[in-house]
Simulated assay, not measured.
Amino acid sequence: MDRNALLAGGAVGVVLVAAVTAVLVPGVLADPTDEGPVRPGPVDVADVSITAGPATGETVTLGIETRIDHRRNPTHNVSVLVRAIDAESGLLTTTERVDVGTLTRDGEATATANLTVPREGGYDIEVLLFREAERVDQTEKSIRGVSAIKPPYLRSTTSFTDSEALPPVSFSIAEAGDDRTTLDLTATLENTGDDPAEDLSVTFVLRQAESNIVASRTTVDAGTIRAGRTESVDATATVPNDYNYYIDVVLLRDGVVIDSARGAANLDPTRTINVNETTEDVELRVDDFEDDGREATEEPDYEATRTESAAPGFGVVVALVALLATAFVARRWRR
Rank of each mutant, 00 (worst) to 15 (best):
T93L: 12
R253P: 03
E164Q: 11
L7A: 15
D288H: 11
P54W: 04
V80E: 09
S260Q: 15
P26M: 04
N212K: 04
E277R: 11
D287W: 15
P269T: 07
R217E: 14
F289I: 06
L185G: 01
R335Y: 04
T66K: 00
F171H: 15
F171W: 15
V60R: 08
T21G: 11
D2C: 05
E140T: 14
A187T: 01
L206V: 01
S147R: 13
T66S: 12
T158Y: 02
V318D: 14
F130A: 06
S49E: 14
L129K: 04
P196L: 04
T218C: 03
V78L: 06
A174T: 09
A87Y: 07
L200Q: 03
G315D: 00
V100C: 05
R217Q: 14
H76F: 11
R72W: 12
D221A: 06
Y243W: 04
E283G: 14
V60A: 04
V48G: 00
T326P: 00
V205M: 12
V98C: 08
G53N: 02
D195C: 05
L91E: 15
A261Q: 04
D254C: 03
G63C: 02
G9M: 10
A296P: 10
R217S: 13
Y246P: 03
I273G: 05
T192D: 10
R217I: 12
H70V: 00
E295L: 05
P167H: 06
P37E: 02
T203S: 10
D292L: 01
D281H: 09
T230Q: 12
L129C: 03
D287A: 15
S309D: 12
D268V: 05
I173E: 11
E58A: 13
E134L: 13
T102I: 00
T272E: 13
T33C: 05
D34K: 00
V202N: 03
E58M: 06
Y123I: 07
T56W: 08
R331C: 03
R331G: 08
D179P: 02
R83D: 14
A30T: 14
E198D: 10
S147W: 03
R105A: 12
R83M: 14
Q138E: 13
G107E: 04
D184S: 15
A330M: 11
A197I: 00
T307Q: 08
L185R: 00
E298L: 15
R253S: 03
L92G: 08
P269K: 01
L267P: 06
E210S: 14
A133G: 10
H76E: 15
D184V: 05
V239M: 07
R119Y: 04
N77H: 15
A19Y: 09
A8D: 13
T326R: 00
D291A: 11
M1I: 13
V100P: 09
V233D: 08
